[in-house]
Design a protein around this nucleic acid. Structure first.
Lengths: 213, 213
DNA sequence: ACTTGTGAATTAATTCACAGCC
DNA sequence: GGCTGTGAATTAATTCACAAGT
């Protein structure tokens, strides 16, 4: 089957969220048009995105909310539970820990740090462990995804430790460009980069049409 | 001048960071090839990206690190100081507050929340204010960028309050799809979406070539 | 000799128009 | 009549090859 644009996956997440809201509100049917408006894209785009994966609607009728919601969750890999560990339990790591508890699809099972300040502290369902124990704990507790919230200088090394311990995906909050074996999935969540993009767009409001000065 | 790909801006941020490291290390010259390796892209891509904005190197020689660093900072709007406010001073907002203090280009001047728990608390250089004071404080302190770290249900309303108070850019950490006037720049930093993408890629390791099952 | 800068070619992504089905 | 699904057309982004400059 065809290669799927990266951006399609991001949009799928938005469609799924819209569907979850609709389902919670008891809505039974929806349309590509409604999903499009909820997600800030066109109805063409919604249909094309879905078509990469299959055919989930009924012509002349639309989509059945719970059906499409389940299908999208399945496609995105949210039909199962992923086991996570956070490396870097500073303020950011601790704050993020709150969020994973909210999702059915993710289970935060461990947290590591180098600082005696936080090692041993109880955060949510676990105790922060020293990073030396990572090579033992990560395989033992079958961690599949690592959340990287260490300082930039420590990022590459921590990522390698995670990969060596068996994780297959990394959500990277650091500004580092990780160099890892390509079978490891990496997703960047570097918000300072987002701020830089934002200031560019603010400085160049007409960047869509013509540019520079 | 030509329209610039979105992805180019993201890569510019990476080039800038590589240049900052080089400059700190006292390195004087670099090449598109070196920048490419540091950023995980091709040298073609580096040169094309730079060419959208101008001509900063010397043929046969390469780029002068401090010159290119300054040019890129300028392009990205980091040659000036942007004034920020955070709306939503929960654990995430407080954790994020740490980071903006580290950058020369951003100055965090205010933080707002609805909860009596955090209102009045000292966070970095300011006291957390009740969100009711936002319409007064944001224009007064010339806030240009809002950081949105409220619960999803409050996101749209908080964003509108920021825009009404005069901000022209929003860094959105919530999963909400904000509907705002198009002259307001929006950058999404929703990390739960990143996790969903990650699980998709982990589930579909061959997504580049052929897909589905 | 070496490395940038760029038009042309290629590949990818989005938009569209309409056929297909309820 | 209405809305989905999809091949075709369009537009965008990346890759490449090499001309240009030092």
């Amino acid at each position: 089957m065809a290669k799927i644009p990266d951006a399609t996956i991001t949009r799928l997440v938005h469609y799924l969220r819209a569907l979850e809201r609709m389902e919670k509100a008891g809505q039974l049917r929806t349309s590509s048009d409604e999903l499009a408006r909820a997600s800030g894209v066109t109805a063409f785009q919604v249909r094309k995105d879905l078509a990469y994966f299959g055919s989930y609607g009924t012509r002349g009728v639309g989509y059945t909310v719970p059906v499409l919601r389940r299908e999208l969750a399945q496609i995105l890999g949210l039909g199962r539970r992923w086991r996570l560990a956070i490396v870097g339990m500073g303020r950011l790591g601790q704050a993020l820990a709150d969020f994973y508890a909210l999702s059915e699809s993710y289970e935060l099972v461990a947290g590591f740090d180098v600082s005696p300040e936080v090692i041993g502290r109880q955060v949510g369902p676990f105790t922060v462990e020293p990073v030396e124990k990572l090579p033992q704990i990560v395989p033992e507790s079958h961690v599949e995804i690592g959340i990287l919230t260490v300082p930039e200088a420590a990022a590459q090394q921590a990522a390698e430790a995670l990969v060596a311990a068996g994780v297959r995906g990394i959500l990277n909050f650091t500004p580092a460009i990780l160099k890892l074996p390509e079978q490891v999935a990496i997703e960047n969540a570097d918000f300072m980069a987002g701020l830089s993009r934002l200031s560019f767009f603010m400085l160049n409001p007409r960047w869509r049409e013509e540019m520079m000065g």
